[in-house]
Design a protein around this nucleic acid. Sequence first.
DNA 1: GTGGTCTAGACCACC
DNA 2: GTGGTCTAGACCACC
Lengths: 132, 132, 132, 132
Amino acid sequence: MMLDIDLQSETPIYTQLVNGIIEGIARGELQPSEALPSVRSLAADLGINLHTVNKAYHLLKQDGYVQINRKQGVVIEPDAFPPADAAFKERLAKQLRPLLADAICRGMSKAELEAACAAVFDELRPNEQGGG
Amino acid sequence: MMLDIDLQSETPIYTQLVNGIIEGIARGELQPSEALPSVRSLAADLGINLHTVNKAYHLLKQDGYVQINRKQGVVIEPDAFPPADAAFKERLAKQLRPLLADAICRGMSKAELEAACAAVFDELRPNEQGGG
Amino acid sequence: MMLDIDLQSETPIYTQLVNGIIEGIARGELQPSEALPSVRSLAADLGINLHTVNKAYHLLKQDGYVQINRKQGVVIEPDAFPPADAAFKERLAKQLRPLLADAICRGMSKAELEAACAAVFDELRPNEQGGG
Amino acid sequence: MMLDIDLQSETPIYTQLVNGIIEGIARGELQPSEALPSVRSLAADLGINLHTVNKAYHLLKQDGYVQINRKQGVVIEPDAFPPADAAFKERLAKQLRPLLADAICRGMSKAELEAACAAVFDELRPNEQGGG
DNA sequence: GTGGTCTAGACCACC
DNA sequence: GTGGTCTAGACCACC
């Protein structure tokens, strides 16, 4: 898996890490039960602080994406990822709203926005069937 | 126009203001050339500091959504909103990616994501052609 | 003479008026002894405040560019414009410095800057001889 | 680098800071990747408020002259300064126009104006090829 | 009355 | 220790 961190970005590094790992899972590059690098080695690889990696791993644990064991270290959740429940869908809609409002003001149509959404989906899951 | 600000949110107040105003434009509640409240009156209405409103107005100006005149105050951009150019679409895709990656991990299909996108669109533009 | 005022500009309107009139003189469109419009008529023409025009005229008087008489109104200085003395040249250099520093950082050479300067000169005085 | 701020000047302090730093870059006193003082220390050094320094730094960031990182603070843009593109040259010409119009009215010739421009250039880049 | 600038001081996120 | 955000309050330029 490739994690590229932008130290200049205004997005906190730990957030970039969380997003990058969730993206890796979505792409299928990270599989359930797979071990993630240790806090120390990932921090060294990326040239960032131990605490930053640690914070990212704990946020992922809190979200149900990884398990943290004393022995095996950090592994991708082996059983089930968090559900797309009502709370998640509400949160998703809330986060989509400002993005879509901006796009609407700029003249994008509903079809164009669905297409933009689909394009990102296809980039993450290139071999997925049309309907799911 | 209704602007409800959540002082407890981790989203900065000025960002909530920016988003709220762009949303108001998308919904058609704010029309080109329409005057926005003065920094002082909006700050007083919302119970926040005038500098926070000022920062939001300046970000909107920078994005091309409002004009700021010393005398007339702040008005919604009368001529043309910023374009949905390549730079915007790239930024949109970049912001959609972590949201969609999360949704994909939780099992949402392409069709479900397009529907979620469409639902937010319909909420903002209920009377649009081809809508829900 | 054409005076186009940009109400959206952050340059104060009275400054735009002063600059526009000096530019008109430089171009030869406004001749010594020529009458300028009355404060009232110019304000009406441009759709701006009387006080703003008045302030511009008084600044021009202070600089030695116009005379203000109760009878004739405001006329372009008939005798001699202010001199390019040491004080003026120092002021000019001081105002050029930030512009040129910016241009230098962006990679413009001395020759390019002299050319940019000459181009503006030619725009204002298209029929001038090379040397002066 | 020397930054001398005139608190009495009608030029805002943050503009003086922006100009002073761009001038420092033009002179070669500030190099790419070089760290600037923290907002707090520069404010303390100059006896001004930290918000004023902060505003200057953010304007420089917006123009592409510096990068702002939470940890490392503010550094001179390491890669490439903003380009002298058409937009910049148009802005430069627009800013030169009132200065040159004034000089023309006062009797300065094209050659004298090119010389004034060259003199400022030489002051900023004394060792440049083809210089005075 | 409008926004523009500046100060002074607080608390927070990041690392 | 760094910048980010927010408050509170002052004076000024413009019109």
